[in-house]
Amino acid sequence: MKNIALFLLDRSTMRGITLGKAIDKMSVRASVHRRDPPRGRRGARRASPGRRDRRRREDRRDPLGDPRDDGGDLGGARPCGIRGGRPLRARARRLRKPIAEHQAIGFKLADMLTSLHAALLMTYQAAARLDAGRVVTREAAMTKLFASRRRCGSPTRRPGSSRRTAWPTSIRSSGISGTRDSSCPAAAPPRSCASSSSRSRLGPRRGVRLTAGRRSRGTRPEERGDASTRALLEEFKVGEQLVTGRRTVEG
C-alpha cells in the first residue's frame, strides 16, 4: 500500500474534526440490540417464574434470556461471562421445568461453549506463536474470522438444521456455571465485542449529526429504516476546516 499513510490527529490542537452521533452498538451495552430493549434488572425480576403478570415482558425477550440477567452467560451479544451466579436459565421455568433442562436450550448452550472454547484456544495459540517470534498473520486472521462470525456464542448449527449436538456430560454435571470462565479472545475480539463505548462523556446520543455528502430525499438509509446501514452514517468527519488547523501532520 504505497499510497496509504497514517496521520496522527491531536484533537486538542486541530480543528475540522466533526463527530457524528454515537452508535448505539450491541454487546458493549450488554444487550441492547433491538428497538424496544428490555430494561435490565427490572425486566428480570418481572420475569420471575410463577407470576402470570410478570410473564409478558419475559415472553418478549430472547428465549435464552437477557445476558444482563445472568451474568452474561447466555446471550451471544455478551458471551464473556460463562460463569455466573444463578443464571436465568436455572431460575426461569417453561413447561413446568427450568429452561436449562429443555433439550433445545442444552443444544444451544453446548454450541456456545464449544465456540467459545475454540475461539479461546485459537487466540492463545496465536498469541503464543507471536511471542515465539513467529509470523501469525494467518492464525490471527483465522481467529478473528472465527470469533467474529460465531460471535463467541451464537449457535454453530444452522437454524433449521436437523443435526443435533450431544449434550456434554461435563457441561450438564457442572451446570455450566462451574465450567471454565471462557471469555472473548482478547487479541482478536469478536465483531460484537470489538467496539467500545463510542459515547460522549456527557451522556448518550450527544454529538453532531454527520453531513456526509448529499443524497436525494427518501433514499437515505435512515429513511429506509435499515438499522445496520443507518448506523454507518453515525460517524465522524475530518473535513475542510482542517486547512486552518495549526498542525495537521505529525510523525
Binding site: I23, R201, L210, L233, E235, F236, V238
Partner: peptide, 12 residues
C-alpha cells in the same frame, strides 16, 4: 485530510 470514518472506537 478529507473524508469520513465510521465505527471508530472511543471516537467521541
Amino acid at each position: 485530510l478529507r473524508g469520513t470514518k465510521t465505527w471508530v472506537t472511543s471516537a467521541p
